[in-house]
C-alpha cells in the first residue's frame, strides 16, 4: 500500500512540475527511485538543507554515486534499514555528472520562487 501511495505522490509531483523530466535521468536514476519508492525529493531537500549551493550538492552527490556508503549518504542510518544501499554506478563520470545536473535542475528552487501579488499590493 505504502509503495502505491509513494508512486502516486511521485507521479503527481512529476506531473505538476513545470520542469520536464529529462529522459536519460528517468532511465538512469529515477526508474529505480520509482521502482523502490525511494523519495528523491526528500533526498534533494536534505542536500539543500545541508550543502546549500548547487556546486557543493553536485560534488557530494557525485562522491556518493561513485562510492555509495552510509558516511557519504545524505540520508540518516535508519533510512537504510528500509532501503538497501545502492550499488556503485556503472555509468562513466561524464554521464553521471550530466544526470546529476539534470537532477539538480529538475528540483531547482530558484525558478519556483515568486512574490505573490497580494504582497506587492501592500
Amino acid at each position: 500500500m505504502v509503495k502505491y501511495i509513494s508512486l502516486f505522490i511521485l507521479f503527481t509531483t512529476l506531473l505538476l512540475s513545470k520542469q520536464p523530466i529529462n529522459k536519460p535521468l528517468q532511465k538512469d536514476c529515477l526508474a529505480c527511485h520509482i521502482k523502490y519508492s525511494i523519495p528523491s525529493e526528500m533526498i534533494y531537500r536534505r542536500y539543500l538543507m545541508k550543502y546549500s549551493s548547487k556546486d557543493r550538492i553536485r560534488q557530494k552527490i557525485f562522491e556518493y554515486i561513485k562510492n555509495p556508503n552510509q558516511e557519504k549518504s545524505i540520508m540518516p542510518k535508519p533510512f537504510f534499514l528500509k532501503f538497501k544501499m545502492k550499488e556503485s554506478s556503472l555509468l562513466n563520470d561524464i554521464r553521471i555528472k550530466e544526470q546529476i545536473d539534470s537532477f539538480i535542475l529538475y528540483y531547482d528552487v530558484k525558478e519556483r520562487f515568486f512574490v505573490p501579488t497580494s504582497s506587492l499590493a501592500q
Binding site: 546549500s52 549551493s53 519556483r112 520562487f113 515568486f114 512574490v115 505573490p116 497580494s118
Partner: peptide, 30 residues
C-alpha cells in the same frame, strides 16, 4: 516552504522591506 517544496514557492515580503536569498557561495537564489 522547504518542508513542502512545492512547484511554486510564494515568498511574502511586506513593504517597506526588501529581501535577497543567498546560498553558501553568496550566489543569489531569489
Amino acid at each position: 516552504l522547504h518542508k513542502k517544496l512545492d512547484t511554486q514557492l510564494p515568498f511574502v515580503v511586506n513593504k517597506p522591506y526588501q529581501s535577497v536569498l543567498f546560498d553558501i557561495d553568496k550566489k543569489v537564489i531569489f
